[in-house]
Design a protein around this nucleic acid. Structure first.
Length: 554
RNA sequence: GCUUCCAUAGUUCAAUGGAUAGAACAGGAGACUUCUAAGCUCUUGAUGUAGGUUCGAUUCCUGCUGGAAGCACCA
Protein backbone atom coordinates (compact mmCIF):
# COMPACT_ATOMS: atom_id res chain seq x y z
CA UNK A 1 0.00 0.00 0.00
CA UNK A 2 2.85 2.32 0.87
CA UNK A 3 4.46 1.67 -2.50
CA UNK A 4 1.17 2.33 -4.20
CA UNK A 5 0.85 5.72 -2.53
CA UNK A 6 4.41 6.55 -3.53
CA UNK A 7 3.60 5.66 -7.13
CA UNK A 8 0.58 7.98 -7.10
CA UNK A 9 2.78 10.79 -5.88
CA UNK A 10 5.35 10.13 -8.60
CA UNK A 11 2.57 10.25 -11.20
CA UNK A 12 1.23 13.48 -9.75
CA UNK A 13 4.65 15.13 -9.81
CA UNK A 14 5.29 14.15 -13.36
CA UNK A 15 1.86 15.24 -14.60
CA UNK A 16 1.62 18.53 -12.71
CA UNK A 17 5.24 19.65 -12.68
CA UNK A 18 7.00 17.37 -15.19
CA UNK A 19 9.67 16.48 -12.66
CA UNK A 20 10.95 13.19 -11.29
CA UNK A 21 13.61 11.92 -8.94
CA UNK A 22 12.33 13.85 -5.94
CA UNK A 23 13.53 12.13 -2.74
CA UNK A 24 10.33 12.07 -0.75
CA UNK A 25 9.12 9.49 1.76
CA UNK A 26 5.76 7.91 2.47
CA UNK A 27 5.27 6.95 6.09
CA UNK A 28 2.72 6.49 8.81
CA UNK A 29 2.16 9.78 10.57
CA UNK A 30 3.19 9.61 14.20
CA UNK A 31 -0.21 10.86 15.20
CA UNK A 32 -2.97 8.64 13.86
CA UNK A 33 -5.36 11.56 13.61
CA UNK A 34 -3.25 12.70 10.67
CA UNK A 35 -4.38 9.74 8.61
CA UNK A 36 -2.83 6.47 7.54
CA UNK A 37 -0.06 7.62 5.25
CA UNK A 38 1.73 10.91 4.90
CA UNK A 39 4.28 12.21 2.49
CA UNK A 40 6.70 15.10 2.74
CA UNK A 41 6.90 15.44 -1.05
CA UNK A 42 5.71 19.05 -1.11
CA UNK A 43 8.30 20.10 1.46
CA UNK A 44 11.09 18.45 -0.45
CA UNK A 45 10.03 19.63 -3.91
CA UNK A 46 9.11 23.20 -2.96
CA UNK A 47 12.63 24.60 -3.26
CA UNK A 48 13.32 22.93 -6.56
CA UNK A 49 10.04 24.30 -7.94
CA UNK A 50 10.55 27.69 -6.36
CA UNK A 51 7.07 27.63 -4.88
CA UNK A 52 5.76 27.43 -1.32
CA UNK A 53 5.23 23.94 0.12
CA UNK A 54 1.54 24.61 0.57
CA UNK A 55 1.11 25.68 -3.03
CA UNK A 56 2.80 22.51 -4.26
CA UNK A 57 0.82 20.37 -1.81
CA UNK A 58 -2.51 21.89 -2.88
CA UNK A 59 -1.76 21.26 -6.55
CA UNK A 60 -0.73 17.65 -5.88
CA UNK A 61 -3.75 16.98 -3.68
CA UNK A 62 -6.10 18.22 -6.39
CA UNK A 63 -4.52 15.79 -8.84
CA UNK A 64 -4.34 12.92 -6.33
CA UNK A 65 -7.96 13.36 -5.25
CA UNK A 66 -9.11 13.23 -8.85
CA UNK A 67 -7.16 10.01 -9.44
CA UNK A 68 -7.48 8.20 -6.11
CA UNK A 69 -8.86 4.70 -5.88
CA UNK A 70 -11.79 3.54 -3.80
CA UNK A 71 -9.74 2.49 -0.76
CA UNK A 72 -8.78 6.10 -0.07
CA UNK A 73 -11.31 8.16 1.81
CA UNK A 74 -9.60 11.52 1.56
CA UNK A 75 -6.33 13.29 0.86
CA UNK A 76 -5.51 16.61 2.47
CA UNK A 77 -2.77 19.04 3.35
CA UNK A 78 -1.72 19.66 6.94
CA UNK A 79 0.97 21.28 9.03
CA UNK A 80 3.90 22.76 7.11
CA UNK A 81 2.80 21.02 3.88
CA UNK A 82 2.40 17.32 4.55
CA UNK A 83 -0.01 15.43 2.34
CA UNK A 84 -2.05 13.01 4.40
CA UNK A 85 -3.93 10.00 3.04
CA UNK A 86 -6.79 8.59 5.04
CA UNK A 87 -8.02 5.16 4.02
CA UNK A 88 -11.62 3.98 3.98
CA UNK A 89 -12.62 2.26 7.20
CA UNK A 90 -13.83 -0.75 5.25
CA UNK A 91 -10.21 -1.64 4.55
CA UNK A 92 -9.53 -2.05 8.26
CA UNK A 93 -12.81 -3.76 9.04
CA UNK A 94 -11.97 -6.41 6.47
CA UNK A 95 -8.56 -6.67 8.13
CA UNK A 96 -10.10 -7.76 11.42
CA UNK A 97 -10.95 -11.09 9.85
CA UNK A 98 -7.31 -11.66 8.88
CA UNK A 99 -6.22 -11.01 12.45
CA UNK A 100 -7.94 -14.12 13.74
CA UNK A 101 -6.57 -16.41 11.07
CA UNK A 102 -3.73 -18.85 11.59
CA UNK A 103 -0.34 -17.33 10.95
CA UNK A 104 -1.41 -13.76 11.70
CA UNK A 105 1.68 -11.58 11.84
CA UNK A 106 3.90 -14.04 10.01
CA UNK A 107 5.91 -12.42 7.25
CA UNK A 108 7.92 -13.56 4.25
CA UNK A 109 10.90 -11.35 4.96
CA UNK A 110 13.40 -14.20 5.00
CA UNK A 111 11.35 -16.83 3.25
CA UNK A 112 13.34 -20.07 2.92
CA UNK A 113 16.58 -18.53 4.15
CA UNK A 114 18.69 -20.62 6.50
CA UNK A 115 19.32 -18.64 9.65
CA UNK A 116 21.56 -19.90 12.43
CA UNK A 117 21.16 -18.16 15.77
CA UNK A 118 23.58 -18.58 18.63
CA UNK A 119 22.69 -17.22 22.03
CA UNK A 120 22.63 -18.09 25.74
CA UNK A 121 26.08 -19.57 25.60
CA UNK A 122 26.86 -20.64 29.14
CA UNK A 123 30.19 -20.78 30.78
CA UNK A 124 30.29 -24.20 32.35
CA UNK A 125 31.43 -23.97 35.95
CA UNK A 126 30.10 -20.47 36.09
CA UNK A 127 26.46 -20.52 37.08
CA UNK A 128 23.74 -19.28 34.75
CA UNK A 129 23.36 -15.89 36.34
CA UNK A 130 21.16 -12.86 36.00
CA UNK A 131 23.15 -11.54 33.03
CA UNK A 132 22.28 -14.67 31.08
CA UNK A 133 18.62 -13.83 31.54
CA UNK A 134 19.18 -10.79 29.41
CA UNK A 135 21.03 -12.69 26.73
CA UNK A 136 18.39 -15.38 26.67
CA UNK A 137 15.48 -12.94 26.50
CA UNK A 138 17.04 -11.10 23.57
CA UNK A 139 18.21 -14.27 21.82
CA UNK A 140 14.99 -16.20 22.19
CA UNK A 141 12.97 -13.29 20.86
CA UNK A 142 15.20 -13.12 17.80
CA UNK A 143 14.76 -16.83 17.25
CA UNK A 144 11.00 -16.44 17.26
CA UNK A 145 11.10 -13.37 15.03
CA UNK A 146 13.26 -15.29 12.58
CA UNK A 147 10.88 -18.26 12.57
CA UNK A 148 7.97 -15.90 11.84
CA UNK A 149 9.84 -14.57 8.81
CA UNK A 150 9.59 -17.79 6.88
CA UNK A 151 13.22 -18.72 7.53
CA UNK A 152 14.53 -22.15 8.46
CA UNK A 153 16.00 -21.46 11.84
CA UNK A 154 18.57 -23.49 13.75
CA UNK A 155 19.34 -22.55 17.35
CA UNK A 156 22.78 -23.08 18.73
CA UNK A 157 24.55 -22.63 22.01
CA UNK A 158 28.32 -22.44 22.35
CA UNK A 159 29.18 -23.54 25.87
CA UNK A 160 32.53 -22.56 27.12
CA UNK A 161 33.78 -25.81 28.58
CA UNK A 162 37.53 -25.47 28.52
CA UNK A 163 39.64 -22.59 29.66
CA UNK A 164 42.32 -21.74 32.15
CA UNK A 165 39.50 -20.59 34.42
CA UNK A 166 37.90 -24.02 34.28
CA UNK A 167 41.26 -25.56 35.10
CA UNK A 168 41.37 -23.37 38.19
CA UNK A 169 37.95 -24.64 39.24
CA UNK A 170 38.92 -28.23 38.60
CA UNK A 171 42.04 -27.70 40.68
CA UNK A 172 39.94 -26.60 43.65
CA UNK A 173 37.42 -29.42 43.22
CA UNK A 174 40.14 -32.05 43.06
CA UNK A 175 41.74 -30.67 46.17
CA UNK A 176 38.50 -30.41 48.10
CA UNK A 177 36.51 -33.42 46.96
CA UNK A 178 38.89 -35.68 45.07
CA UNK A 179 38.60 -37.27 41.64
CA UNK A 180 35.47 -39.24 42.48
CA UNK A 181 33.38 -36.11 43.10
CA UNK A 182 29.88 -36.18 41.65
CA UNK A 183 28.24 -32.74 41.60
CA UNK A 184 24.73 -32.30 42.91
CA UNK A 185 24.57 -28.53 43.08
CA UNK A 186 25.71 -25.97 40.52
CA UNK A 187 26.50 -23.52 43.29
CA UNK A 188 29.41 -25.74 44.38
CA UNK A 189 30.91 -25.53 40.90
CA UNK A 190 30.40 -21.78 40.76
CA UNK A 191 32.03 -21.37 44.15
CA UNK A 192 34.95 -23.52 43.05
CA UNK A 193 35.40 -21.29 40.03
CA UNK A 194 35.44 -18.15 42.14
CA UNK A 195 37.77 -19.70 44.67
CA UNK A 196 40.09 -20.97 41.93
CA UNK A 197 40.40 -17.52 40.38
CA UNK A 198 41.19 -16.05 43.76
CA UNK A 199 43.74 -18.73 44.69
CA UNK A 200 45.44 -18.37 41.32
CA UNK A 201 45.84 -14.66 41.82
CA UNK A 202 47.11 -14.96 45.36
CA UNK A 203 49.34 -17.99 45.11
CA UNK A 204 51.84 -18.26 42.28
CA UNK A 205 52.83 -21.64 43.65
CA UNK A 206 49.79 -23.32 42.13
CA UNK A 207 50.28 -21.89 38.63
CA UNK A 208 52.29 -24.85 37.37
CA UNK A 209 49.75 -27.36 38.63
CA UNK A 210 46.79 -25.41 37.20
CA UNK A 211 48.47 -25.02 33.81
CA UNK A 212 49.19 -28.71 33.85
CA UNK A 213 45.51 -29.41 34.43
CA UNK A 214 44.62 -27.00 31.62
CA UNK A 215 46.96 -28.81 29.23
CA UNK A 216 45.34 -32.14 30.05
CA UNK A 217 41.89 -30.72 29.53
CA UNK A 218 42.81 -29.10 26.22
CA UNK A 219 44.42 -32.33 25.09
CA UNK A 220 41.60 -34.53 26.39
CA UNK A 221 44.21 -36.63 28.08
CA UNK A 222 42.96 -39.35 30.37
CA UNK A 223 43.55 -38.24 33.94
CA UNK A 224 41.80 -37.48 37.22
CA UNK A 225 41.12 -33.93 36.09
CA UNK A 226 39.72 -35.12 32.76
CA UNK A 227 37.35 -37.54 34.50
CA UNK A 228 36.16 -34.96 36.98
CA UNK A 229 35.79 -32.38 34.23
CA UNK A 230 33.61 -34.70 32.13
CA UNK A 231 31.26 -35.40 35.02
CA UNK A 232 30.91 -31.73 35.87
CA UNK A 233 30.40 -30.75 32.24
CA UNK A 234 27.57 -33.22 31.84
CA UNK A 235 25.95 -32.05 35.04
CA UNK A 236 26.21 -28.43 33.99
CA UNK A 237 24.67 -28.98 30.59
CA UNK A 238 21.63 -30.70 32.00
CA UNK A 239 21.25 -27.88 34.51
CA UNK A 240 21.53 -25.37 31.68
CA UNK A 241 18.87 -27.17 29.66
CA UNK A 242 16.50 -27.10 32.59
CA UNK A 243 16.92 -23.39 33.16
CA UNK A 244 16.48 -22.37 29.53
CA UNK A 245 13.51 -24.70 29.13
CA UNK A 246 11.88 -22.83 31.97
CA UNK A 247 12.53 -19.62 30.06
CA UNK A 248 11.05 -21.04 26.88
CA UNK A 249 14.21 -21.85 24.92
CA UNK A 250 15.39 -24.98 23.24
CA UNK A 251 18.67 -25.53 21.44
CA UNK A 252 18.92 -27.67 18.34
CA UNK A 253 22.65 -28.06 18.70
CA UNK A 254 25.70 -27.39 20.81
CA UNK A 255 29.20 -26.64 19.69
CA UNK A 256 31.68 -26.76 22.54
CA UNK A 257 34.62 -24.49 22.89
CA UNK A 258 36.81 -27.54 23.25
CA UNK A 259 35.94 -28.73 19.71
CA UNK A 260 36.07 -25.24 18.27
CA UNK A 261 39.44 -24.67 19.92
CA UNK A 262 41.08 -27.63 18.21
CA UNK A 263 39.80 -26.63 14.79
CA UNK A 264 40.46 -22.95 15.41
CA UNK A 265 44.05 -23.59 16.42
CA UNK A 266 44.60 -25.65 13.27
CA UNK A 267 43.11 -22.99 11.01
CA UNK A 268 45.11 -20.24 12.65
CA UNK A 269 48.34 -22.20 12.22
CA UNK A 270 47.49 -22.95 8.58
CA UNK A 271 47.08 -19.22 7.97
CA UNK A 272 50.31 -18.16 9.64
CA UNK A 273 52.03 -16.08 8.38
CA UNK A 274 49.54 -15.23 5.60
CA UNK A 275 46.92 -13.83 7.99
CA UNK A 276 48.37 -14.23 11.47
CA UNK A 277 51.91 -13.58 12.63
CA UNK A 278 54.12 -15.00 15.34
CA UNK A 279 55.06 -12.59 18.07
CA UNK A 280 56.73 -13.15 21.40
CA UNK A 281 55.98 -16.84 21.35
CA UNK A 282 52.32 -16.35 20.51
CA UNK A 283 50.35 -16.12 17.29
CA UNK A 284 48.54 -12.82 16.88
CA UNK A 285 46.42 -11.01 14.36
CA UNK A 286 47.32 -7.40 13.63
CA UNK A 287 44.42 -5.58 11.95
CA UNK A 288 45.11 -2.87 9.40
CA UNK A 289 42.43 -0.61 10.83
CA UNK A 290 43.49 1.61 13.69
CA UNK A 291 40.09 1.12 15.22
CA UNK A 292 40.74 -2.53 15.92
CA UNK A 293 43.31 -3.92 18.28
CA UNK A 294 45.88 -6.65 17.99
CA UNK A 295 44.70 -9.90 19.54
CA UNK A 296 46.39 -13.12 20.58
CA UNK A 297 44.90 -16.21 18.93
CA UNK A 298 47.34 -18.86 20.15
CA UNK A 299 48.96 -18.22 23.51
CA UNK A 300 52.55 -18.91 24.44
CA UNK A 301 51.55 -22.29 25.81
CA UNK A 302 50.30 -23.20 22.36
CA UNK A 303 46.65 -23.25 23.39
CA UNK A 304 43.92 -21.45 21.44
CA UNK A 305 42.49 -18.35 23.06
CA UNK A 306 38.88 -17.23 22.87
CA UNK A 307 39.74 -15.61 19.53
CA UNK A 308 40.94 -18.83 17.91
CA UNK A 309 37.99 -20.72 19.35
CA UNK A 310 35.70 -18.28 17.59
CA UNK A 311 37.52 -18.93 14.32
CA UNK A 312 36.92 -22.64 14.87
CA UNK A 313 33.30 -21.90 15.71
CA UNK A 314 32.84 -20.02 12.44
CA UNK A 315 34.26 -22.95 10.54
CA UNK A 316 31.96 -25.42 12.30
CA UNK A 317 28.91 -23.21 11.90
CA UNK A 318 29.34 -22.75 8.16
CA UNK A 319 30.55 -26.29 7.55
CA UNK A 320 27.64 -27.92 9.35
CA UNK A 321 24.73 -25.55 8.73
CA UNK A 322 25.55 -23.52 5.59
CA UNK A 323 23.59 -20.56 6.92
CA UNK A 324 22.55 -17.64 4.75
CA UNK A 325 22.76 -15.63 7.93
CA UNK A 326 24.62 -16.53 11.09
CA UNK A 327 23.42 -14.38 13.96
CA UNK A 328 24.99 -14.42 17.38
CA UNK A 329 23.97 -12.57 20.47
CA UNK A 330 26.37 -11.52 23.21
CA UNK A 331 26.75 -8.59 25.54
CA UNK A 332 28.28 -5.35 24.30
CA UNK A 333 31.56 -5.89 26.14
CA UNK A 334 32.50 -8.37 23.45
CA UNK A 335 31.80 -6.06 20.52
CA UNK A 336 35.42 -5.19 19.78
CA UNK A 337 36.53 -8.78 20.30
CA UNK A 338 34.19 -9.95 17.55
CA UNK A 339 35.10 -7.04 15.32
CA UNK A 340 38.71 -8.26 15.39
CA UNK A 341 37.76 -11.93 14.95
CA UNK A 342 35.56 -11.16 11.95
CA UNK A 343 38.22 -8.93 10.44
CA UNK A 344 40.64 -11.85 10.57
CA UNK A 345 37.95 -14.33 9.53
CA UNK A 346 37.12 -12.56 6.29
CA UNK A 347 40.71 -13.10 5.15
CA UNK A 348 40.32 -16.82 5.64
CA UNK A 349 36.80 -17.27 4.25
CA UNK A 350 35.05 -14.03 3.20
CA UNK A 351 31.63 -15.62 3.75
CA UNK A 352 32.34 -15.97 7.48
CA UNK A 353 32.32 -12.22 7.82
CA UNK A 354 29.73 -11.38 5.16
CA UNK A 355 27.07 -13.70 6.52
CA UNK A 356 27.71 -13.16 10.20
CA UNK A 357 25.79 -10.64 12.22
CA UNK A 358 26.68 -9.76 15.77
CA UNK A 359 23.88 -8.31 17.83
CA UNK A 360 24.76 -7.24 21.31
CA UNK A 361 22.89 -6.12 24.34
CA UNK A 362 23.91 -4.00 27.28
CA UNK A 363 25.24 -5.09 30.54
CA UNK A 364 22.94 -5.87 33.37
CA UNK A 365 23.93 -4.42 36.68
CA UNK A 366 22.25 -5.47 39.87
CA UNK A 367 21.09 -2.67 42.14
CA UNK A 368 23.82 -0.43 40.79
CA UNK A 369 26.54 -2.98 41.58
CA UNK A 370 28.66 -4.25 38.73
CA UNK A 371 28.52 -7.97 38.55
CA UNK A 372 31.40 -10.23 37.90
CA UNK A 373 30.73 -13.91 37.63
CA UNK A 374 34.44 -14.54 38.05
CA UNK A 375 34.54 -12.81 41.39
CA UNK A 376 31.24 -14.08 42.69
CA UNK A 377 28.31 -12.44 44.39
CA UNK A 378 26.06 -12.62 41.36
CA UNK A 379 22.46 -13.73 41.72
CA UNK A 380 21.66 -16.90 39.81
CA UNK A 381 19.04 -16.72 37.09
CA UNK A 382 16.96 -19.30 38.88
CA UNK A 383 17.15 -17.38 42.15
CA UNK A 384 15.96 -14.20 40.49
CA UNK A 385 13.22 -16.10 38.72
CA UNK A 386 12.05 -17.76 41.93
CA UNK A 387 11.99 -14.43 43.75
CA UNK A 388 9.94 -12.83 41.00
CA UNK A 389 7.47 -15.70 40.91
CA UNK A 390 7.14 -15.48 44.68
CA UNK A 391 6.23 -11.83 44.29
CA UNK A 392 3.55 -12.71 41.73
CA UNK A 393 2.05 -15.19 44.18
CA UNK A 394 2.03 -12.63 46.96
CA UNK A 395 0.22 -10.22 44.71
CA UNK A 396 -2.32 -12.81 43.66
CA UNK A 397 -2.50 -15.76 46.09
CA UNK A 398 -5.10 -17.58 43.99
CA UNK A 399 -2.99 -17.74 40.88
CA UNK A 400 -2.17 -21.14 39.41
CA UNK A 401 1.50 -22.19 39.67
CA UNK A 402 1.98 -22.24 35.90
CA UNK A 403 0.39 -18.82 35.50
CA UNK A 404 2.58 -17.41 38.28
CA UNK A 405 5.66 -18.58 36.42
CA UNK A 406 4.40 -17.19 33.12
CA UNK A 407 3.66 -13.81 34.68
CA UNK A 408 7.01 -13.64 36.44
CA UNK A 409 8.89 -14.45 33.26
CA UNK A 410 6.85 -11.89 31.34
CA UNK A 411 7.73 -9.21 33.88
CA UNK A 412 11.42 -10.00 33.50
CA UNK A 413 11.42 -10.33 29.73
CA UNK A 414 9.50 -7.15 29.02
CA UNK A 415 11.72 -5.24 31.45
CA UNK A 416 14.62 -6.37 29.27
CA UNK A 417 13.04 -6.20 25.82
CA UNK A 418 11.20 -2.92 26.01
CA UNK A 419 14.45 -0.99 25.73
CA UNK A 420 16.63 -0.97 22.67
CA UNK A 421 19.17 -3.74 22.98
CA UNK A 422 22.61 -2.33 23.60
CA UNK A 423 21.72 -0.18 26.54
CA UNK A 424 22.76 -1.18 30.00
CA UNK A 425 20.04 -2.07 32.42
CA UNK A 426 20.37 -1.60 36.09
CA UNK A 427 18.22 -4.37 37.40
CA UNK A 428 16.69 -3.68 40.74
CA UNK A 429 13.81 -6.03 41.52
CA UNK A 430 12.17 -3.29 43.56
CA UNK A 431 12.03 -0.72 40.79
CA UNK A 432 12.87 -2.31 37.42
CA UNK A 433 10.35 -5.00 37.77
CA UNK A 434 6.94 -3.72 37.06
CA UNK A 435 3.67 -5.57 37.24
CA UNK A 436 1.66 -2.50 36.31
CA UNK A 437 1.74 0.02 33.48
CA UNK A 438 4.19 -0.68 30.66
CA UNK A 439 4.94 -4.21 31.68
CA UNK A 440 4.71 -7.83 30.68
CA UNK A 441 1.90 -8.60 33.11
CA UNK A 442 -0.08 -5.63 31.75
CA UNK A 443 0.09 -7.12 28.26
CA UNK A 444 -0.81 -10.56 29.54
CA UNK A 445 -3.64 -9.17 31.62
CA UNK A 446 -5.08 -7.46 28.58
CA UNK A 447 -4.94 -10.64 26.52
CA UNK A 448 -6.49 -12.66 29.36
CA UNK A 449 -9.22 -10.09 29.74
CA UNK A 450 -9.98 -10.28 26.01
CA UNK A 451 -10.06 -14.08 26.16
CA UNK A 452 -12.38 -13.92 29.14
CA UNK A 453 -14.79 -11.72 27.20
CA UNK A 454 -14.87 -14.15 24.31
CA UNK A 455 -15.55 -17.02 26.70
CA UNK A 456 -18.29 -15.06 28.40
CA UNK A 457 -19.99 -14.25 25.09
CA UNK A 458 -21.28 -17.81 24.86
CA UNK A 459 -23.38 -18.20 21.74
CA UNK A 460 -22.73 -14.69 20.47
CA UNK A 461 -20.24 -15.16 17.65
CA UNK A 462 -17.89 -12.41 16.47
CA UNK A 463 -18.93 -10.83 13.19
CA UNK A 464 -17.74 -7.89 11.16
CA UNK A 465 -20.96 -7.41 9.22
CA UNK A 466 -22.36 -4.59 11.35
CA UNK A 467 -19.59 -2.17 12.28
CA UNK A 468 -20.22 0.34 15.01
CA UNK A 469 -18.39 3.57 15.77
CA UNK A 470 -15.73 3.82 18.45
CA UNK A 471 -13.24 1.18 17.36
CA UNK A 472 -11.65 2.95 14.39
CA UNK A 473 -8.34 3.49 16.15
CA UNK A 474 -8.10 -0.12 17.30
CA UNK A 475 -8.86 -1.38 13.81
CA UNK A 476 -6.09 0.70 12.31
CA UNK A 477 -3.64 -0.36 15.01
CA UNK A 478 -4.39 -4.02 14.47
CA UNK A 479 -3.72 -3.61 10.75
CA UNK A 480 -0.20 -2.43 11.55
CA UNK A 481 0.84 -5.59 13.38
CA UNK A 482 2.45 -7.40 10.42
CA UNK A 483 4.51 -4.40 9.41
CA UNK A 484 5.62 -3.89 13.00
CA UNK A 485 6.81 -7.49 13.05
CA UNK A 486 8.64 -6.84 9.79
CA UNK A 487 10.46 -3.85 11.24
CA UNK A 488 11.46 -5.86 14.32
CA UNK A 489 12.74 -8.64 12.05
CA UNK A 490 14.64 -6.33 9.73
CA UNK A 491 16.39 -4.55 12.55
CA UNK A 492 16.55 -7.54 14.91
CA UNK A 493 14.95 -5.17 17.39
CA UNK A 494 12.22 -6.70 19.55
CA UNK A 495 11.60 -3.42 21.35
CA UNK A 496 9.61 -2.13 18.38
CA UNK A 497 7.19 -4.95 19.00
CA UNK A 498 6.98 -4.20 22.72
CA UNK A 499 6.12 -0.54 22.01
CA UNK A 500 3.46 -1.59 19.56
CA UNK A 501 1.85 -4.13 21.89
CA UNK A 502 1.74 -1.63 24.74
CA UNK A 503 0.02 0.91 22.52
CA UNK A 504 -2.48 -1.69 21.38
CA UNK A 505 -3.16 -2.82 24.94
CA UNK A 506 -3.60 0.74 26.16
CA UNK A 507 -6.09 1.51 23.42
CA UNK A 508 -7.97 -1.68 24.04
CA UNK A 509 -8.20 -1.12 27.79
CA UNK A 510 -9.31 2.44 27.25
CA UNK A 511 -12.07 1.28 24.92
CA UNK A 512 -12.98 -1.49 27.34
CA UNK A 513 -13.48 1.06 30.08
CA UNK A 514 -15.87 3.13 28.02
CA UNK A 515 -18.80 0.75 28.01
CA UNK A 516 -20.03 -2.80 27.85
CA UNK A 517 -18.70 -5.11 25.17
CA UNK A 518 -21.47 -7.64 25.57
CA UNK A 519 -24.95 -6.15 25.74
CA UNK A 520 -28.46 -6.68 24.38
CA UNK A 521 -27.66 -5.32 20.95
CA UNK A 522 -26.63 -8.58 19.27
CA UNK A 523 -25.34 -7.05 16.03
CA UNK A 524 -23.21 -4.49 17.86
CA UNK A 525 -22.00 -7.12 20.35
CA UNK A 526 -20.96 -9.39 17.51
CA UNK A 527 -18.90 -6.60 16.00
CA UNK A 528 -17.28 -5.66 19.30
CA UNK A 529 -16.40 -9.30 19.84
CA UNK A 530 -14.73 -9.37 16.43
CA UNK A 531 -12.54 -6.50 17.58
CA UNK A 532 -11.85 -8.26 20.88
CA UNK A 533 -10.88 -11.45 19.08
CA UNK A 534 -8.49 -9.59 16.80
CA UNK A 535 -6.87 -7.80 19.74
CA UNK A 536 -6.52 -11.03 21.70
CA UNK A 537 -4.91 -12.82 18.77
CA UNK A 538 -2.55 -9.93 18.06
CA UNK A 539 -1.43 -9.65 21.69
CA UNK A 540 -0.98 -13.40 22.02
CA UNK A 541 1.07 -13.67 18.86
CA UNK A 542 3.09 -10.58 19.69
CA UNK A 543 3.90 -11.89 23.16
CA UNK A 544 4.80 -15.26 21.69
CA UNK A 545 7.33 -13.54 19.44
CA UNK A 546 8.85 -12.02 22.57
CA UNK A 547 9.09 -15.45 24.16
CA UNK A 548 6.17 -14.87 26.51
CA UNK A 549 3.17 -17.12 27.16
CA UNK A 550 -0.28 -15.83 28.00
CA UNK A 551 -1.75 -17.49 31.12
CA UNK A 552 -5.26 -18.94 31.11
CA UNK A 553 -6.23 -16.79 34.03
CA UNK A 554 -4.56 -14.18 36.16
C1' G B 1 46.48 7.78 26.52
C1' C B 2 43.86 5.46 22.12
C1' U B 3 39.16 3.29 20.10
C1' U B 4 33.95 2.59 20.50
C1' C B 5 29.13 3.36 22.64
C1' C B 6 25.85 6.44 25.51
C1' A B 7 23.45 11.37 27.51
C1' U B 8 15.42 12.90 26.59
C1' A B 9 10.36 14.45 32.65
C1' G B 10 12.16 13.18 39.72
C1' U B 11 12.81 7.63 37.73
C1' U B 12 12.72 3.69 33.69
C1' C B 13 12.17 3.90 28.52
C1' A B 14 10.01 5.60 23.22
C1' A B 15 10.32 8.84 18.89
C1' U B 16 12.85 5.30 9.52
C1' G B 17 15.58 13.98 9.39
C1' G B 18 9.26 15.99 10.01
C1' A B 19 3.61 18.10 12.28
C1' U B 20 1.99 19.88 19.46
C1' A B 21 8.98 15.22 21.72
C1' G B 22 5.19 9.97 23.26
C1' A B 23 4.40 6.22 27.33
C1' A B 24 4.89 4.10 32.11
C1' C B 25 6.32 4.65 37.29
C1' A B 26 6.41 8.16 41.22
C1' G B 27 3.33 12.89 42.72
C1' G B 28 -1.82 15.37 42.53
C1' A B 29 -7.25 14.74 41.44
C1' G B 30 -11.39 11.50 40.05
C1' A B 31 -15.22 7.82 38.22
C1' C B 32 -17.55 2.94 38.85
C1' U B 33 -24.60 -1.01 41.91
C1' U B 34 -21.54 -2.90 35.21
C1' C B 35 -18.17 -8.23 31.14
C1' U B 36 -11.01 -9.57 35.40
C1' A B 37 -9.13 -2.79 39.43
C1' A B 38 -2.28 -6.23 37.32
C1' G B 39 -7.71 -1.83 34.74
C1' C B 40 -10.00 3.31 33.35
C1' U B 41 -10.34 9.15 33.25
C1' C B 42 -7.98 13.96 34.19
C1' U B 43 -3.35 16.42 35.78
C1' U B 44 2.17 18.43 37.09
C1' G B 45 6.86 17.62 34.53
C1' A B 46 12.15 16.67 29.69
C1' U B 47 15.91 16.76 24.51
C1' G B 48 23.74 17.81 28.96
C1' U B 49 26.53 22.28 26.56
C1' A B 50 28.41 25.48 22.23
C1' G B 51 28.40 25.65 17.16
C1' G B 52 27.45 23.64 11.99
C1' U B 53 24.52 21.22 7.80
C1' U B 54 19.04 21.45 6.42
C1' C B 55 12.85 24.22 4.32
C1' G B 56 12.91 21.39 9.08
C1' A B 57 17.61 18.30 14.00
C1' U B 58 16.31 14.34 20.00
C1' U B 59 18.08 12.16 15.30
C1' C B 60 23.52 13.92 10.88
C1' C B 61 28.72 16.60 11.60
C1' U B 62 32.46 19.20 15.04
C1' G B 63 34.16 20.95 19.92
C1' C B 64 33.23 20.66 25.20
C1' U B 65 31.24 18.32 29.77
C1' G B 66 29.69 13.88 32.08
C1' G B 67 29.09 8.32 32.08
C1' A B 68 30.10 3.11 30.23
C1' A B 69 32.95 -0.62 27.65
C1' G B 70 37.30 -2.36 25.16
C1' C B 71 42.61 -1.92 24.23
C1' A B 72 48.11 -9.25 23.33
C1' C B 73 48.41 -14.23 25.95
C1' C B 74 40.48 -14.54 30.70
C1' A B 75 35.97 -15.82 28.41
Amino acid sequence: MKDLVAQWVVDALSTEYSISGVLFVVEHPKDMSHGDFATNVALVAAKQLNKSPHEVADTLVTYLTAHKDSTVECIDVAGPGFINFTLERSVFIAGLADATKEGWGDTILWQDKRILIEHSSPNLFKPFHIGHLMNNAVGESMVRLARASGAQVTTLSFPSDISLGVAKAVFVLLEKYGAQYVPTDVAVLGDAYVEGVKRYEEDEGIHTRVRHIADHLYAGKSSDEWTLFQVCKKFNISYFEQVVARLGSHFDAYIYESEAGIIGARIVREHTPSVFVESEGTIVYVPESEKLHTAVFINSQGNPTYEAKDIGLLDLKFEQYHPDLSLFVTDAQQASHFAVVLDAAKKIVPEWDEKSLHRFHGRMTFKGQKMSSRLGGVPLASEVLDAVIEEVKEKNPDIAPLAAQQVGIAALKVAILRAQAGKNIDFDPDTSLSFVGDSGPYLQYTAVRAASLLAKAGDAAPSITHPIPGTELLERLIARFPETVTVAQQEWAPHHLVSYLLELAQNFNSWYGQGKIIDDDTAATAYRLAVVAAVRQTLTKGLFLLGIDVPEKM
